[in-house]
Each structure stands twice: as structure tokens, then as C-alpha cells.
Design a protein around this nucleic acid. Structure first.
Lengths: 330, 330
DNA sequence: GGCTTTTGTGTAAGCGCTTACAGAGAAGTG
DNA sequence: CACTTCTCTGTAAGCGCTTACACAAAAGCC
């Protein structure tokens, strides 16, 4: 790691400019000269310093990603899709989690100084800081948030998918519903799901707050809900983790799912597929979200595109057994 | 992002050395002078270039991490623990996945040029390249592999935990066992688990290959195993994903778990807890693995320690319902 | 008051690499 | 042969920041 381009040049008997040209193919180099350079590189086991290259080029060849936490499988899948495409494009990925961190502003700015652009999940970064980053010309792509002027946004479809899910549930003949996991922000993913479900079920469904979208919070809220008056026949959950909590609550209360109460989730994470009963849920194309985000960011970084774009990816309704019986199916 | 230290110095009417000293606190600066500098910094919204600082300091303030994939929740948890401590120590985390990648050597070397040290999972990086990195003085910490000269290793305990698991299973009175997920490498994690289980169950257990440690491969191998002659009464699986596959196979064949066949896993991932029956498994302190790795790497990077160290973290036997009935217990 | 020590600041040299531009030599053309 | 064009190479200037060292002024001490 201590060999510099100067030592290679000396050993090969050429200038550092020639070494650079030979290695990068950025200019004409005689075959004989190239051989001498490559031989010296091999003998000295030289690898160009990333720092030197980046400073001289004025670019990092790296992408950033800011997320609230990775404990939910949702974020992991997006990250994997993102990293895969970033690597294909010759870029490293620098990660930053904001969970439990103070001075998020400083952390995000430090990240911005290390990368050519970044992906931000939803509202992980405070809005004033987002506005500042946009003003500074930082290339940004957002996943899972409403459109924002000056930056790209990418999300999965929510409203129509929620309507399809609610329609399917109604087809089971249920008449009393609850939506577990009230929206935190207007127009965020969960709010759109709530809107879509409500369009179909109307006054037959009521939203219940869970405080966070975790298994634990879903369990607590479901326990309270299922112990109360007017128990719903079906619970539509904001996401799979909350739904897993609801399954635990039903189990503890000795309620059969879906016989006594049906439960649905959102995301189609691994645990949802392996729970019993297997969760009926909506699958988000999470890897594709990450992959598309990396490509969008590439367009912004290379200048292939300079106008913000807002994309919506399609979802898939995964009917399993938690919503009710399906004659002659699965 | 375009303001340089020169512009700040000009605006504050001091030299760039004074700006640097004022911002970093590396030398005496008069209070009056410091105020002028801070005012200029604020007016110009200056943030020091990470590249400039790193090149001048000769360090990146970043940690690398190389993993085969993040699809398994195991890797995610380790990454989270790692990132959290790295951030506390003022370091960013640069990730690299090797799954499906060609030219892993080039990718790893590029990563090495961006960070002050890195964490590598098991045998993700080919041994010759590992030897070369060690020789080049790259600070390395390995997780989940046997001790290696010249680098730190960190793993969870396997053999004694496997003995405890096997002892518990034997206590259920089973007499025929299978180990699903044969070891790939001598002394790797799975091999140690296999050794521990075999010490207790001896000739009553036989290893079955799964090719990979995934749900799908576990399912295929379990299907074959359970359809064959001499069906085992209990299946000890290499890890939770393989165990989830075994649960799917049993379900498909109409076998009751644990009535007809008991199943155990390893890791205690979310899906293992939410499966039904809930998996008996061994919990690895995955976040702590990551956190300890980051701290170990910090010691190597700062020079607080220069001799390699090999640590083993304790695990916890999680008895749930997939191994058999437990009177008056959950 | 003279000498020593401390505080504060600026200059210059790098850290490792890229590349514009100038110049030399070789090749091509009329 | 003279002129033009092409190939190849080296020099010098930066990219943005840190800091050793020299020097000046102020403070402290006898």
C-alpha cells in the first residue's frame, strides 16, 4: 500500500504521466513502453491510491445510502439491489444508519463529502437538511417518499395495491375490519395503503396506532385491539412486521387465524412466508427499488439526465392462508 | 460543495493554516481570530473536503466490510453492530458484496484503498488474496472463520453449544438423527457444529449435504431425506434457513413437527421465531460480533494493539417447540 | 532592563494522482 | 527535399487539505 506512482515511473524509466496513461489507457503509449510500465507495476505490486485518483479526478466513484435501520428485511433487500448495480457501475457503497444517532446533519454531510451522490430512505434525513443538500447540488435519489422538487423519488405502488388487497378481503365476506399501524406522515407509504384500503372498505375499517412499525408494537396494539369490544374479523396491517406481532397476539389469546380473525401484512419478508399461517401480503420489489435507485443516481452523476424523475414500481398481491380459506388452492 | 479552505482564509483575512487550526483545534488560535474564521465558515457554508483531509492525514476514517450476501439475516445483524460502533469511532463503512461478482480480487483491493481496515466474513475472500493483504499490512478482522496468523478472528462458540443442543434433543428420547447441511470446509462454523453434535449423538447421527445453506436447498435435501428409508426422528440443521426449508418439506409431506420429526436450527433469525412450530435454535450474538469486530479493528488501526487476537463469543440455546414437548413450558 | 518562555501566525512542502500543453521524432504527402 | 500531420513523452500545475518550522510579539522571570 506504500508504493507510489513515482516509484513505478522510476523503475520503468518513464515519467509518472506515462505510467498513468499506460494504466488508464487515456493516451497513446508505445507498446514497448507499456510493457516496461506493466512489468514495474507487477514487480512493485502497485495499486493506484484511491484518494489520489479521486482528488485528481474530482470524483469519488462511490455512492452513499442513508437508512433508519436495517433490522427490517425491507431495507436490506433495497441495499442489496443498490450495491449490486453500483458495483457494476464501478462504484463503492458507503452506508450510514441514522438510528439512535445524534448530529445526523454532520453525519450526512460527512457522507456527502465521500460520495458522488446518495440514496435516502423516506424521511430519514430532516427536511431542512434535504433542502440544503439539494441547494448544494448533491445528487439525491429518495426511496419511499412522496415526490420532492429537485431530486428523484422512487417508490412502490401503494394505493391500488391496497385496494386490491381490501377487495380480496371483502371477497371473504368479512364485515368488520381494523387497520393496524396508523400513518405517521401524510402521503407516506403507509398513508397511501390506508387510503387505498379505505376506498374499498369505507366505514367498515378503522385505523389503530402502533407508534412504530415493529413486531413488538404490532403485538401490543393487536393485543389491546383483540381484547376490546367489537373485535374485527380481519386486521389489515401496515407492514409484515406489525402483522407478525398481530399473529403473536392472536396466538396468545387463543384466537385462530384466519378462523377467528384474519390478518394481512405488506412487504413479503422471509418471516411472513414462514409464519403459520403464512401471511397474505403485498410483495414489494425491494431489490429492484435499490437497483433502479442506483441507475437513476448514475444518470444524475454522469449528467446523462438533469431533470428530476418520479417513478412508481408495481407490487404483487401474495394470497396465502392468513386471510381465509381458498377452496382448492395452495 | 465547491468552497475551499482558501476562500474561507481570504474572507477571514488569515492563512489557510489558521483556518485549519481553528476548525480542528490542533494549535493555539486567538479567540478573536477564531471568531472571524467561524463566521467565514458559516457565511460560506464550508465543509472540509473529505478527500483533502484524508490525503493530507494519510488515513480514510473509514472501515470496509466484505460479505458474500446479505440475504440471510445473519449478515445484516453483524453489519448493523459493526456500523454502529464504526460511527461512534468517527468512521464511515464501505460495503462490498462478493455474490455473483467476477474479479473479486480487484474489488477487494479497490476497497482496501478506500478504508483503514476491513472486516471479512469467513472465506469470502480467496486465501491467496488474504495472504497478500496481510503481507501488505492491511488491517484485517475476520468473522466466522478459524484463526489465521497475522489477522484477528472473531466467531461465536460452536462445538460446546452444539453439544448442549444435541444433549437436549437426546433428552427428548429420540434415537435416530440426521444433520442437514454438511460442512463445506474443515473447522468452519458448520463443521464445528457437526463435531459437537456428533460427540453427543455418535453413530446415531448422519450428515446430509445441502450444497448451500439456503431455505431452498434445505427444503430439497429434507424432502429427499424424509421420503427415504429410515426416516430420522430429529433433524439438526446447520442453520435456521436450512431448518426453515426442512419445516416446509415436513409440512408438504404431511409430517407433524415435532410429533413425527423434530427440527432444530442455528442463529435465531426472525423467521425462526415466527415459524410454527417456533424453531428451537442456538442464538448467535450477531450484533455483538459486528460491534466487537469494529472495536478490534480500531485497536489495530490506531496502533493500540499490534498482535493478532482470536475471540470466541458465547451463544444461547433457545428452546422452543420444534424439538418436542416441554411440560408446563412455553 | 535583559533574557527566556509562551502564544500566535504565515510560508512552504507535501500527501498521490491526473492531464493540458509543449516539444521532439517519426511517418506521410506532394 | 520541404512541409504537414501523427505518435509519443515529459514538465508543470493543480485537485484540497495538514502541519513542521521559522519568526514576531507578548508575557513572565530574575
Amino acid at each position: 500500500m506504500d508504493v507510489t506512482i513515482y516509484e513505478v515511473a522510476k523503475r520503468a524509466g518513464v515519467s509518472i504521466a506515462t505510467v498513468s496513461r499506460a494504466l488508464r489507457g487515456t493516451g497513446p503509449v508505445a507498446a514497448r513502453t507499456r510493457e516496461k510500465v506493466l512489468k514495474a507495476v507487477e514487480e512493485l505490486n502497485f495499486t493506484p491510491s484511491r484518494l489520489g485518483v479521486s482528488l485528481a479526478e474530482g470524483r469519488h466513484a462511490a455512492n452513499g445510502i442513508v437508512f433508519p435501520d436495517l433490522a427490517g428485511p425491507y431495507y436490506t433487500e433495497v441495499l442489496l439491489g443498490y450495491e449490486e448495480v453500483a458495483s457494476e457501475l464501478g462504484r463503492s457503497v458507503v452506508i450510514l444508519s441514522t438510528k439512535g444517532r445524534t448530529k445526523v446533519g454532520d453525519l450526512v454531510k460527512d457522507l456527502a463529502g465521500r460520495v458522488d451522490g446518495m440514496l435516502i430512505f423516506g424521511h430519514t434525513v430532516p427536511e431542512p437538511l434535504v433542502a440544503e443538500l439539494v441547494r448544494l447540488g448533491v445528487r439525491l435519489v429518495f426511496v419511499s417518499r412522496e415526490p420532492l422538487a429537485g431530486a428523484d423519488t422512487l417508490r412502490s405502488e401503494n394505493t391500488a395495491s391496497a385496494r386490491a388487497l381490501a377487495g380480496h378481503l371483502a371477497g371473504h365476506g368479512y364485515e368488520r375490519f381494523a387497520f393496524l399501524g396508523a400513518p405517521l406522515t401524510s402521503q407516506d407509504d403507509v398513508d397511501q395503503r390506508w387510503q387505498g384500503v379505505r376506498e374499498v372498505l369505507g366505514g367498515a375499517i378503522e385505523a389503530v396506532d402502533t407508534r412504530h412499525y415493529t413486531v413488538e408494537c404490532g403485538y401490543d396494539a393487536a393485543l389491546t385491539l383483540l381484547r376490546g369490544e367489537g373485535r374485527p374479523e380481519a386486521i389489515v396491517c401496515s407492514d409484515d412486521e406489525v402483522a407478525l406481532g398481530a399473529l403473536l397476539a392472536a396466538e396468545e389469546l387463543g384466537l385462530d387465524v384466519p378462523g377467528d380473525v384474519a390478518v394481512t401484512g405488506w412487504d413479503d419478508i422471509m418471516a411472513a412466508r414462514h409464519a403459520r399461517p403464512a401471511l397474505t401480503t403485498v410483495r414489494q420489489p425491494m431489490r429492484e427499488l435499490g437497483a433502479r435507485a442506483a441507475r437513476a443516481l448514475d444518470e444524475l452523476i454522469t449528467g446523462a439526465r438533469d431533470t428530476p424523475r418520479h417513478l412508481v414500481l408495481t407490487t404483487e398481491l401474495m394470497i396465502r392462508s392468513s386471510c381465509g380459506g381458498h377452496p382448492a388452492a395452495t
